[in-house]
Design a protein around this nucleic acid. Structure first.
Lengths: 242, 242
DNA sequence: ACAAACTGATGGTCTGACCAAAATATAGTG
DNA sequence: CACTATATTTTGGTCAGACCATCAGTTTGT
């Protein structure tokens, strides 16, 4: 008898902070708060929900981590403006340290990034293109000075992904950006490659400016092939890329 | 002079809980803790890191939300066993409730899913194909009985994504699966469509069995077109899909 | 041997004090 | 009046400690 009852696990009790998370999410879903809106302050939320401020804070930590909220000390807590930017991908680096991880990463990149370039060529505003132009000029200057231009590369990639007007794709880029930049850094270790990297970006941007999606996608493909080839050289592996 | 200095914002100070998050992640990255391992208890972490227990808890809330940790009251805090499965994508449903969200979602699906089908046709083992066959038969049976077959559809999609042998792509599917299933459910609301859906899956699986990547990708594309067309009909919008 | 009760450990919640950063209000000066 | 400096208030951030709820292991009673 007792044995049988043990098969029915009691329903897991919801924690206070989980309930608060759910309530705040509900408010967002219902349109009560929009991107950029300020949430009531912690002390007020604690009163309204009749819980301790600690529980409110734990809920906020959770939502922050999910990219939904942003807390600013002395200022308040806001619905994230660009939720995508704060979301973290702990898995990706784990996968890349494994045997086939790099193959998988490049397989995904070959799928996603030329498409982003294609969409950007179709959709970028003139203003966006100008910002890309400036960013590329900045990068050229930094590389001339012997720097890697990595931070600027990050910016360039985000600009590109943003211009594509697809938040799902942007999200994928954001989740894996540090891996993208890592393999780029490896690429740059050989002389002449920083310049080549800039050349590829230049080709890419020229195609976007010309509103040539096919040209943009092709430039991105070439760029990825360069990086991938260099990685597999470094790893002493026979490259599988034509 | 003062005006000029304001252009240089001070570097953002790292919060204690963020530092703890980073340290715990570092330990996981370094292999100090593996999936399923127990972390030191909160009180001990607070001592080791020389911070208050509250700060430790806030860090744990953050890592829980990222799917890396699981806390069990009266028991301890563990490294999550299946991080992929517990990772939440709160953004996707928010995006889809917005004006262009569905367009963006299908744009991504049209990119990802035919590729998954392609890779699965190349890489699926015979065993995997058999399981897919069984799953499809199960789904046919359920649909014959008047059910939606949604849970089985989920399984089918995971099988497909798994057979593609790319964890990054699998992760993308996992993050957005509930949205995929939602639009499928909408599709099924019109008579005759469940059968059509099965037909598409059948075409897809036949192509995979025949090791025909192009056929598989084409079948998936047709399937998505069906779903997308139905969605835009429901939304009273002129479909942009040929 | 088994069941019930107890104990200790762990996460969960609360309270309140104080700190740090930012915003706002007030006072002083030209 | 406009601007600057200072003081005050507000908000998030951290801490400490008390207590509660759950769980697992140990002890006691039948």
């Amino acid at each position: 008898m007792k044995k049988k009852l043990k098969l029915f696990k009691p329903v897991k009790k919801t924690r206070v902070y989980e309930e608060i998370v759910a309530k705040i999410k509900d408010m967002i879903d219902k349109g009560r708060f929009k991107s950029g809106d300020q949430l009531p302050v912690e002390r007020e939320l604690a009163e309204v929900f009749r819980v301790s401020r600690s529980s409110v804070r734990e809920a906020i930590r959770s939502l922050e981590s999910q990219g939904l909220l942003e807390s600013r000390q002395g200022n308040g807590t806001y619905i994230a403006k660009h939720p995508v930017e704060s979301l973290v991908n702990p898995l990706a680096s784990v996968i890349c340290s494994e045997k086939d991880g790099q193959r998988e990463l490049f397989e995904m990149r070959r799928l996603i990034e030329p498409q982003l370039a294609w969409l950007a060529a179709e959709r970028a505003t003139d203003e966006e293109i100008q910002v890309m132009e400036k960013t590329l000029a900045l990068q050229e200057r930094e590389i001339t000075r012997g720097g890697s231009g990595t931070e600027i590369d990050r910016n360039f990639h985000y600009l590109l992904a943003g211009a594509a007007r697809n938040r799902f794709l942007l999200h994928i880029v954001d989740n894996n950006m540090s891996l993208f930049l890592e393999s780029r850094d490896n690429f740059l270790q050989v002389e002449g490659r920083p310049e080549k990297s800039i050349q590829r970006h230049r080709e890419l941007l020229d195609a976007i400016k010309a509103r040539d999606p096919e040209g943009a996608a092709a430039a991105m493909r070439e760029h990825l092939i360069d990086i991938e080839n260099s990685l597999f050289e470094m790893m002493g592996r026979k490259s599988r890329v034509q």
